[in-house]
Design a protein around this nucleic acid. Sequence first.
DNA 1: GCCTTATAGTATCGAGTCGATACATTTGAA
DNA 2: TTCAAATGTATCGACTCGATACTATAAGGC
Lengths: 183, 183
Amino acid sequence: MFSSTTLLLERLSRLVQNDAHTDGVKPTQWEALRYIARANRFSRSPGALTNYLGMTKGTVSQTLQALERKGLIKKQTAAGDRRGVKLELTSAGEKLLSADPLSDLEASLASMPKESRNALGASLQGLIKGMLEQRGGRAFGACKTCRHFKRRHDLGAPHFCNLLEEALSAGDSNKICAEQEAA
Amino acid sequence: MFSSTTLLLERLSRLVQNDAHTDGVKPTQWEALRYIARANRFSRSPGALTNYLGMTKGTVSQTLQALERKGLIKKQTAAGDRRGVKLELTSAGEKLLSADPLSDLEASLASMPKESRNALGASLQGLIKGMLEQRGGRAFGACKTCRHFKRRHDLGAPHFCNLLEEALSAGDSNKICAEQEAA
DNA sequence: GCCTTATAGTATCGAGTCGATACATTTGAA
DNA sequence: TTCAAATGTATCGACTCGATACTATAAGGC
């Protein structure tokens, strides 16, 4: 038998997943939309999404096809590598995301005392990191917390990624990146 | 955009769900098996499971058919109401549950400091309660924490459910019940 | 330049999920 | 008795997901 915390996590997972059957968009499709919205330009690819979701590329390919059929995303061949595909939200996709069913969870969280919420966040972070490491997954942290991130302090100057050797806008550096490694 | 805690919960939910594709048994099937193992004899029915999982009865019916095909559960008509179905694990089902993939999560939790784990449990409990209330669901607490639970202190005497007017073994009273209401 | 291998994705199959709708039985109350 | 409620099942369609096989591009060694 499991500890009560394990069972609570199982139960919560189901609630979160079940919640996401809105507007004819399925849980996985919501997660893909959210990812695309939150990933920087180096990470908006089927491959990065595959890693993020921890599924096989075939499955992700199908999910992306469904989203494209619905007009929520569009694909373009990547600049510089014609094998690659770059994913972008359409305006319909952006609009839909503003009515994300995850808002219910956000509301429940908002009604918790701030300290509990912070403690919960810290616990979850450790837990997720542990689970991802167990199965060889990556954490997908924010660009600006990466060891390859080079901050530029000059007013208006772009930051820089030492790994990809690319300039980074303020927007880029706040997003999550498939290559991120903790500093 | 969501708070980081919301996003962590989303991510964790996916990890927990994804983990459960072992042994040809799907996530929902695992949850059904766990429920049947943990529910007392008044609550081992398709209807109670439907409420617990928060799905439609059609879906649950199919899931139970799949489990029966695999020989993990068996159904019998309920004593006293011929519409009802009583669910029981087979010995194969019990054996499978002893290799539950949720053990990974349990292990990750066990490696957390005890205080963090307790804080996490308390936060989750409040969160789940809030979410369930939002959608009119029930909490499915343990029988012995119910306001209908009447404890018998005589050595060896059974406890009693005032709602269903039934004697309760020690085993019954430790399990979860679809009728449970907090004392 | 050519060959091999790696990388990025797609196509297809089969079992299962899930909501929706329609249906059959049994129960219980007017 | 008849009608409504409760408990489940049957079937459909869109989707999920792993597995396997496939195509196209890229990159390195020679």
